[in-house]
Simulated scan of single mutants.
Amino acid sequence: LWPLYQALSRPMAPVRAVVELGGSAPRRFLTYAICQPALAAGFDGPQVLEAAMLILPEGTVDLPRLAPQPVGTSCRICPRRDCVARREPSILADGF
């Protein structure tokens, strides 16, 4: 869900997004991400892409009026129950 991974799916197209980290006190951040091709091992080498993301905390910049994208640090410790991108159960969920 992080913009860094969105940038990897569309090289050379910058991604700006407001993200919100879940938890008891949700925090918002402004992010900028970009992906660029890197030099591979010669002309016949595999395609290599490199991505970078800048994360600016709310309060240090004015957040644009974008709906925040809910994100987490890791599925195992993310408190969001209805995440469409969950890859493994959370140890914080009820029933464990």
Rank of each mutant, 00 (worst) to 15 (best):
A25S: 13
T73G: 14
Y32F: 14
D82A: 13
Q36K: 12
A13Y: 15
P3M: 01
L49Q: 08
L92S: 06
Q36S: 14
A51E: 06
Y32S: 06
P11Y: 04
P89V: 12
S24N: 09
L39K: 13
P57T: 09
F43Y: 12
L8A: 05
R87V: 13
L21F: 09
P89A: 10
E20D: 01
R27W: 05
L49H: 06
L30I: 11
A40H: 12
P68N: 04
A40N: 08
A38G: 04
V61T: 09
P70I: 07
Q69K: 07
D62C: 07
D82P: 12
Q69R: 14
R28G: 01
T31E: 11
I55H: 03
D62F: 06
P79R: 10
G59S: 11
A33H: 05
A7C: 02
Q47K: 15
P57I: 05
W2M: 05
Y5H: 11
D82L: 05
A41V: 13
Q6P: 00
P46M: 11
T60A: 12
L54F: 06
C75Y: 02
S74I: 05
L63K: 00
M53N: 00
D94W: 09
P14N: 01
L4R: 07
E88I: 09
R27A: 11
F29G: 04
R76P: 04
V48N: 08
D94L: 12
L92V: 11
G72Y: 02
Q47V: 14
D62V: 15
R28I: 07
D94Y: 04
L54R: 08
T73N: 10
P46S: 15
T31K: 01
C83E: 03
C75I: 01
F29K: 03
V71P: 04
G22A: 14
S9G: 07
G23I: 03
P64H: 00
G42V: 04
R28C: 03
A13G: 04
C35Q: 02
Y32A: 10
E88G: 00
T60E: 11
I91A: 10
Q69W: 10
V15R: 02
A38L: 11
V48K: 06
R27G: 00
L1T: 08
A93C: 09
A52T: 14
M12H: 15
G95P: 02
G59D: 10
A85R: 12
W2H: 06
G42E: 06
F29L: 01
M53S: 08
G45F: 09
P79T: 05
F29N: 00
P68F: 01
